[in-house]
């Protein structure tokens, strides 16, 4: 035997052994007979190595079962559930594998990228390789989510409550939260967790980038149900103040073409346009986004209605004037 077998080869031998065993293999049998475990310097070192390997295999979808004998004093053993091991019967065409390759390109997040590319390796077994890589002329890109995503995903998949430290957006207050994760959503450049906040007894939206440190478990898997009528998407939308409305804008001639391009005809006549300005009706859902966008045009776009949107823009403009005064005083 060579010295220490590389981990991938040790794991390969472990899978083959556990697939082929009749009944089960005990830890002792594994240590003494499976290639790669014979170099463990101590029982402790072996135990650690085996536990880690078992977790790695389960993460990869290999169903490693723990088998306990019926008779008293029977030692616990392990085997692979060969029926659960197998991918559902499928054949993928070249076009389908091409679409999957595109989907694998989707993630800029390291965790999901590695997962997707490994899934593609598995599916290559049952598929025809596409001749052209870029079948649709598309390049989807989603922002990375950071380290909290993986543990939250796993917890949501098995309905296991989580605990983490969270920095609130508005106050900056840092607190421990216990949450039943319902769904993870990527939207407008951010990643969000929607779930039941156990301390508040109500659904909440958490931004992943504000989770500080590690995500831990607060209870066992299967500890909660996602309520029948739960609508995580709607909760996120309302957290992002999404509601369909129409803004009536006065736009200076030949300015703000990007806003004009979004204009839609409406049944109502709208407010009267001031002399020398164009009246444009723009549908919107997120008031604060539109207020930011309009503020950037400063005196080229004025809000006529609704008053709430106009006040948002006016507040931003006043803030900017105050800022310039404040900083000017610093420098002056």
């Amino acid at each position: 035997m060579p010295d220490a077998l590389p981990p991938a080869e040790r794991l390969l031998n472990l899978v083959i052994a556990l697939v082929n065993t009749t009944g089960k293999m005990t830890k002792e049998q594994i240590r003494s007979s499976v290639a790669g475990y014979d170099h463990a310097p101590s029982t402790d070192a072996f135990e650690r190595m085996f536990e880690r390997d078992k977790e790695t295999l389960r993460d990869l979808g290999v169903p490693v079962l723990t088998v306990t004998g019926a008779a008293h004093g029977d030692e616990q053993g392990y085997r692979v559930d060969v029926d659960a091991y197998a991918l559902a019967p499928m054949e993928l065409s070249a076009a389908q594998l091409g679409v999957l390759a595109l989907a694998a390109e989707f993630w800029q997040d390291q965790t999901l990228r590695a997962e997707a590319s490994r899934a593609l390796t598995k599916l290559a077994v049952v598929g025809v390789r596409p001749a052209e890589p870029d079948v649709l002329g598309l390049a989807p890109r989603v922002h990375p989510a950071g380290p909290a995503l993986g543990p939250l995903l796993d917890a949501a998949a098995v309905r296991q409550p989580v605990r983490f430290t969270y920095r609130a957006a508005s106050t900056g207050e840092v607190r421990e939260r216990t949450v039943e994760p319902w769904r993870l959503l990527a939207s407008r450049g951010g990643w969000y967790l929607v779930g039941l906040d156990r301390d508040r007894g109500a659904p909440r939206v958490f931004r992943l980038s504000r989770i500080v440190g590690q995500v831990g478990h607060a209870a066992d898997p299967g500890d909660y149900q996602v309520p029948e009528g739960a609508d995580p998407r709607a909760l996120l939308d309302s957290a992002q103040e999404a509601e369909a409305r129409t803004a009536w804008l006065a736009i200076a001639p030949e300015r703000a073409e990007a806003l004009r391009a979004r204009a839609r005809p409406t049944a109502e006549p709208g407010p009267p346009a001031p002399e020398g300005w164009d009246l444009v009706a723009v549908p919107y859902t997120r008031a604060s986004d539109l207020a930011d966008e309009i503020t950037a045009y400063t005196d080229a776009v004025l809000v006529l209605e609704p008053a709430s949107l106009r006040e948002s823009v006016l507040r931003r403009l006043r803030d900017a004037v105050a800022m310039a005064d404040r900083l000017g005083a610093n420098h002056g």
């Binding site: 979808g61 993630w107 999901l112 598995k122 998949a157």
Partner: peptide
């Protein structure tokens, strides 16, 4: 081999 949970989710 079947897909793991995260692998399936990613695709």
């Amino acid at each position: 081999l079947r897909l793991g949970t995260r692998e399936a989710v990613a695709l």
